[in-house]
């Protein structure tokens, strides 16, 4: 019997009841969310359950929604069951003032750098991470550059006197 989105949804609801919510299937991939202090329980259940077996963490990243008060940051896990070849997407939301989420490093060694990257760009504080420090940006950086309030360079700026890049100088 192959594993379908319907079965996964049912198994999760049996186990966690009201705690798992927001079931959707955008482009065929089952997507759901849970409260942030339940993230490890859900991941552990998905990992251990003899039927579900989501033991491969494909991807982990964050998304910033500045307009959703109290749920500004989303941490998104893409999980893959390699035996039945099913992918799911699992989200936890956290407020930006105290962005503490439990780390998944005990379950997946691969979460180590993925979480460091997420911390680096969004400032999600992964509680219990063995080495939570910046990975791609410089250590001295004091902001989280992929958050929406961090602006990209204004393309019409004129203060940069740099002919090589086509700004200012004799070109204008």
């Amino acid at each position: 019997m192959s594993l379908t989105n319907e079965i996964i949804k049912q198994r999760l609801q049996e186990k966690f009841g009201e705690q798992v919510s927001g079931f959707e299937e955008p482009y065929g991939m089952l997507t759901f969310e849970a409260p942030k202090d339940h993230n490890l329980k859900v991941l552990q259940f998905l990992f251990d359950d003899a039927e579900l077996r989501f033991q491969f963490l494909t991807d982990l990243c964050a998304v910033h929604y500045p307009d959703q008060a109290g749920r500004e940051l989303a941490v998104v896990y893409h999980l893959h069951n390699l035996i039945d070849n099913v992918r799911i997407r699992f989200k936890v939301f956290t407020d930006i003032a105290s962005p503490d989420v439990y780390t998944a490093t005990s379950l997946y060694s691969t979460a180590n750098w993925m979480e460091r990257e997420t911390f680096d760009f969004y400032g999600v504080n992964f509680v219990g991470h063995p080495n939570l420090k910046r990975i791609l940006n410089v250590d001295e950086m004091d902001y989280f550059p992929l958050r929406k309030e961090f602006p990209l360079e204004d393309q019409t700026r004129r203060d940069k006197d740099d002919e090589m890049f086509g700004r200012g100088g004799s070109i204008n």
């Binding site: 482009y27 991939m29 997507t31 494909t58 893409h78 992918r87 997407r89």
Partner: peptide, 20 residues
């Protein structure tokens, strides 16, 4: 509007794009 994950077999592994 939409949310999509697509991956291809790259030269050195699964190259995925998560687009919102």
């Amino acid at each position: 509007a939409g949310e999509v994950y697509h991956s291809v077999e790259g030269g050195n592994g699964e190259l995925g794009f998560y687009l919102i």
